[in-house]
Write a protein that binds this DNA or RNA. Structure first.
Lengths: 114, 114
DNA sequence: GTTGTAATTTACCAACAGGTTAATTAACCA
DNA sequence: TGGTTAATTAACCTGTTGGTAAATTACAAC
């Protein structure tokens, strides 16, 4: 896999389990066991997912006795937001054309009213 | 790999070659051969990358004689933008705290002026 | 029809991803 | 000390990714 930051971030986000973990972490720091709770997979699997997220800089982990509390680190998502914003005009373009078309329809309706 | 749309999109974007292809396509429709031009990999490799992008709905292809012109389809990026926006407050948080701190500093300076 | 060009398909390969079970580390508790 | 809990590591398996070279398809131009 490519190792540039953006590729690391995108590929970390390309898994629904990992995105769900981030969603959970948005509500606050928690343990690995509690993170694993909602999923029907083993703890080592979750551990691996966390390692991927950590390598991408999306989570950081502390130490509290035998717990490794995980917390969200959203900073890498800024680069994602910036990258994708470049393309906004392209996905809004079609909508613009639709709006043009609807305006045109409206104009025609007005004409037929007269 | 997961097959939900968002996972498909993220994983398509997790490769620098594919992102570069999308960047190129933002300047307009073009052939596979021309897309391959800047990369030091074979045409079949580019063909595969295009297939990944196509499966993610990020490019569409036409036919013109023996050419398969590719064009950007940015719509799936909207979901990416929406997803990542949920986290904006988290990566801006630290900045907010910095701003608070700077405001506090300013207040202190005012006091010391008096 | 033959030749040239664009692109894909096929067959293959090495590396990696995502999961498992079993063993291990580390800390707490009593 | 021994037992429990949290989490990771190790070893392994299977399917997928990202690349290649060679063959094939499809079209155009002569």
């Amino acid at each position: 896999m490519a190792t540039d930051q953006l590729s690391l971030t995108f590929s970390a986000l390309a898994d629904p389990t990992r995105r769900a973990i981030l969603t959970r972490l948005a509500f606050g720091e928690t343990s690995v066991k509690e993170l694993a709770q909602p999923f029907k997979m083993t703890l080592p699997a979750i551990s691996k997912h966390l390692k991927v997220l950590e390598r991408a800089g999306l989570v950081a982990r502390g130490r509290d006795a035998q717990w490794r509390p995980c917390r969200l680190e959203a900073k890498p998502l800024e680069e994602v937001a910036d990258w994708v914003e470049q393309y906004r005009r392209f996905w809004e373009e079609r909508l613009d054309r639709l709006e043009d078309y609807l305006r045109e329809l409206q104009a025609q309706e007005k004409n037929s009213d007269v």
